[in-house]
Amino acid sequence: MPVRAVSFIAKSGTGKTTLLEKVILELKSRGYLVGAVKHDAHSFDIDHPGKDSHRLTAAGADTMVISSSEKLALVKKHQSPPSLEEIIETYFNDVDIVLTEGFKRGAMPKIEVHRRQRSKTLLCRGEKYDPTLVAVASDEALILDVPVFDLDDPVGVADFIEQAFLSANKKVRGRRASAAH
């Protein structure tokens, strides 16, 4: 069964991360296992000079994992960037849903975050029509062909995600599946 995923998209500074944090907290409170992927248009480095993990990567390790009793981090060099679908398929088979931040050009279902002060038009219903748009969270009333939620309503957004992407899956993975037994 494929992992369900939804991309939160918007122009920078609109409030994607803030809304996404609140939606993750809400879905977690309902017992779902939630994955997250953040798109970074720039090069980033989670390793820090002087740390053993950085030294191993700098020495040429193509894949390096640092692991503790609570979590792990993976640094993997690649020749060409993997698609979002490949990332989800490879690393997120143990969660109920993956919420991504960014990936506005991707093919995943999208929830656009809109703030009137930041932009007069939507990315997915402006100059171009993106058929993958499934909802909008906005600080202004909009009449669209998809549901529109208040930007400050993470519970409503989580309800929508649960109904549209999780309730069709009667036997979800994670704690909900084990709680049913």
Results as ranks from 00 to 15, higher is better:
T121D: 13
R176M: 05
A10M: 01
D40G: 01
T57V: 14
S138T: 12
D40K: 03
L142F: 05
A180G: 02
H54W: 15
A137N: 00
A179L: 15
Q163T: 15
I66Q: 01
K16I: 00
L99V: 04
A135T: 08
K71F: 08
I161H: 01
D150K: 15
H114L: 10
H54N: 09
D152T: 10
K22A: 11
P49I: 05
S138W: 00
L33M: 08
S67Y: 09
F165Y: 10
Q117H: 07
I9E: 11
V155L: 07
A36C: 07
V3F: 09
R116L: 03
A158I: 03
G31I: 13
Q163S: 15
G50S: 12
L166W: 01
K51L: 07
T14M: 13
F44D: 09
F165M: 09
E89I: 03
S80E: 15
L84S: 09
D159H: 13
L144G: 07
L123V: 07
L144K: 06
P147I: 09
H48E: 11
K22N: 14
T18N: 07
H39M: 04
L72S: 14
G31A: 10
R116T: 11
K110F: 07
V172H: 02
K110W: 01
V155F: 12
E112D: 06
V23A: 02
V95K: 01
D159W: 11
N93D: 13
I88D: 04
L33N: 14
E140H: 12
R173E: 06
F44P: 05
H78Y: 15
K76E: 15
H181F: 12
G126N: 05
A36E: 04
E21L: 02
D150P: 09
A5F: 04
A168V: 06
I46H: 07
